[in-house]
Simulated scan of single mutants.
Amino acid sequence: MAYKSTILITGGTSGLGYHAALDMARACPDSQVIVSSRSDKEQVAASINKMLGQSNVVYVPLDLGDLAKVRAYAKDFAVAQHPPIQALVLNAGLQFPGEVKTTVDGLEATFGINHVGHALLFHLLVPYLADNARVVITSSGTHDPEQWSGMPLPVYTSAEELAYPTTEFTASHSGRQRYTTSKLCNVLWAYALARRLSEQVPARGITVTAMDPGLMPGTGLGREAGTVARFLFSKVMPRTIPLMRVLARTDNIHHPSESGAALARLAVGDDDGVRGVTGKYFEGHREIRSSKDSYDVKKQNDLWQWTVESLSGGDEETRKRFDEFR
């Protein structure tokens, strides 16, 4: 079958990503849906196809913690000649409790996977984005100090410090704080990207939004945590969501299927609340304001410039390509 467009989601084989991929595949049977993550042990693509009686979902492995593999992934995408990307959903995310862990490229792993790997993927796939394509980034309400989550508050010093936390101050941050800071980076980068796309290539109509899926017990986000924490998060908490909402005095606690539907809406929904919307932040289905720090243009520009410079390796021609979206 010749598909009219491509929908690509990272972290699409479990939890939030799986449910979003399922909803997008159901809503867009004439689009190729690519689910990408480090592995697909549950054969998710085949499972979705069987469930829907379709064949438009495929799995393509992607390791965001290895920039060489991200580059290879983008090269393979070009060679495969997929139809233009209508929705690029940058959803994958990890947190690493405890001491600092690094990627194969020497980056602090939370920042490297949740931000840098995704940023590189976007820049490499720009030529294959369709006009009016949507870029959707999964962030988290934990990035906002005004939304109490029980998580440590994010601390944005500089992108360089986050990438290479060698000082006593940043190296001593907890793994959970590195996670909330990476989620702040997701929103900072989303706003910086939306602004540059609107200024440089307005005719392409590419939009960028970020979303907080809420607390979702049962997802694989905490798979790097200890045995007891993993058991509570994956087995106990999913059974007590209604009680948790009452005790926490918030309705922003969801089953992954609920948040997956909200993420799919941002990517492929056709209502006025999402069509043409850019540079905005959503809590599930609702557009809301993000944290005060996320609107700090100096922080946005620091993250943007560091990212482009780092990914280009200092080469001026490569830097222009990463910074101009042509």
Score class of each variant (00 low, 15 high):
residue 268 V to N: 08
residue 291 S to Q: 11
residue 66 D to Q: 05
residue 16 L to K: 05
residue 125 L to S: 03
residue 116 V to N: 04
residue 67 L to E: 13
residue 236 V to R: 02
residue 292 K to P: 01
residue 134 R to E: 11
residue 18 Y to H: 13
residue 105 D to K: 05
residue 168 E to Y: 13
residue 231 F to G: 09
residue 58 V to G: 05
residue 100 V to Y: 02
residue 83 P to T: 15
residue 266 L to Q: 09
residue 286 R to C: 10
residue 237 M to C: 06
residue 122 F to V: 12
residue 67 L to G: 07
residue 122 F to K: 06
residue 224 E to F: 02
residue 175 G to Q: 14
residue 126 V to W: 04
residue 103 T to I: 09
residue 11 G to W: 03
residue 311 L to Q: 04
residue 309 E to K: 15
residue 266 L to F: 02
residue 152 P to V: 03
residue 210 A to Y: 02
residue 47 S to R: 14
residue 76 D to R: 12
residue 127 P to W: 01
residue 199 E to L: 14
residue 238 P to Q: 11
residue 213 P to M: 13
residue 325 F to G: 01
residue 54 Q to A: 10
residue 153 L to Y: 07
residue 60 V to W: 12
residue 26 R to I: 01
residue 89 V to P: 00
residue 242 P to D: 03
residue 32 Q to P: 00
residue 289 R to G: 12
residue 255 H to Q: 11
residue 152 P to L: 05
residue 306 W to D: 13
residue 52 L to S: 02
residue 221 L to N: 08
residue 119 A to V: 14
residue 214 G to R: 00
residue 195 R to N: 11
residue 3 Y to D: 09
residue 20 A to V: 12
residue 40 D to R: 07
residue 287 E to T: 15
residue 94 L to Q: 12
residue 4 K to L: 11
residue 156 Y to P: 08
residue 33 V to N: 03
residue 191 Y to R: 02
residue 23 D to P: 00
residue 321 R to D: 14
residue 270 D to I: 10
residue 296 D to A: 08
residue 78 A to S: 04
residue 79 V to D: 05
residue 21 A to Q: 09
residue 286 R to M: 10
residue 112 G to S: 06
residue 214 G to E: 00
residue 280 K to Q: 13
residue 321 R to W: 12
residue 216 M to D: 03
residue 109 A to S: 13
residue 33 V to K: 09
residue 260 G to V: 05
residue 24 M to N: 00
residue 97 P to G: 02
residue 8 L to A: 09
residue 167 T to K: 08
residue 155 V to W: 01
residue 28 C to R: 15
residue 116 V to Y: 04
residue 106 G to T: 10
residue 91 N to G: 03
residue 276 G to E: 08
residue 170 T to P: 01
residue 68 A to L: 06
residue 31 S to Y: 09
residue 300 Q to N: 04
residue 154 P to T: 07
residue 24 M to S: 00
residue 72 A to R: 03
residue 142 T to F: 03
residue 164 Y to S: 05
residue 5 S to T: 14
residue 294 S to C: 06
residue 187 V to A: 03
residue 282 F to M: 06
residue 198 S to L: 13
residue 311 L to I: 02
residue 223 R to F: 13
residue 130 A to D: 15
residue 250 T to P: 05
residue 326 R to P: 14
residue 75 K to F: 00
residue 265 R to V: 02
residue 88 L to S: 06
residue 38 R to G: 11
residue 295 Y to T: 07
residue 282 F to V: 06
residue 22 L to R: 14
residue 109 A to E: 13
residue 250 T to D: 01
residue 168 E to F: 13
residue 248 A to N: 10
residue 290 S to T: 14
residue 229 A to W: 04
residue 140 S to Q: 08
